[in-house]
C-alpha cells in the first residue's frame, strides 16, 4: 500500500500527527508505524493504539497484512 496514502489517512483524523512508516518485511504489507501526536497525552496505551487502528481498520482487511504501532507524544 502507498505509504503516503496511509500518512494522509492518519493526519486527516489526527491533525498534528507526525507519521513514520517502515516496511518491516520488504513486502510493503507488514508495516511499522511510529505516530507522534499530542492528542495521545493522558490516554492509556490501548486508547492511543485504538485511535490509529480505527483509521487503518478498512485497509487492514485488504491491503495491509499487519501493522506494528508505536505511539508517542511530541514532548
Amino acid at each position: 500500500m502507498d505509504f503516503e496514502k496511509i500518512k494522509i489517512l492518519i493526519t486527516n483524523k489526527i491533525e498534528d500527527a507526525d507519521v513514520e512508516i517502515t516496511d518491516l518485511t520488504g513486502t510493503r504489507d507488514h508495516l511499522g508505524l511510529v505516530v507522534s501526536s499530542n492528542q495521545f497525552k493522558g490516554k492509556m496505551l490501548i486508547e492511543q493504539h485504538r485511535m490509529v487502528m480505527d483509521i487503518l481498520k478498512e485497509s487492514l482487511k485488504e491491503e495491509i497484512h499487519a501493522v506494528k504501532i508505536k505511539t508517542v507524544t511530541k514532548d
Binding site: L45, I46, H49, K68, I69, K70
Partner: peptide
C-alpha cells in the same frame, strides 16, 4: 478484558 495485540503486549 481485552488488553491489546502484539505491540501493546510487547510494550507492556
Amino acid at each position: 478484558q481485552f488488553v491489546g495485540g502484539n505491540d501493546i503486549i510487547t510494550e507492556l
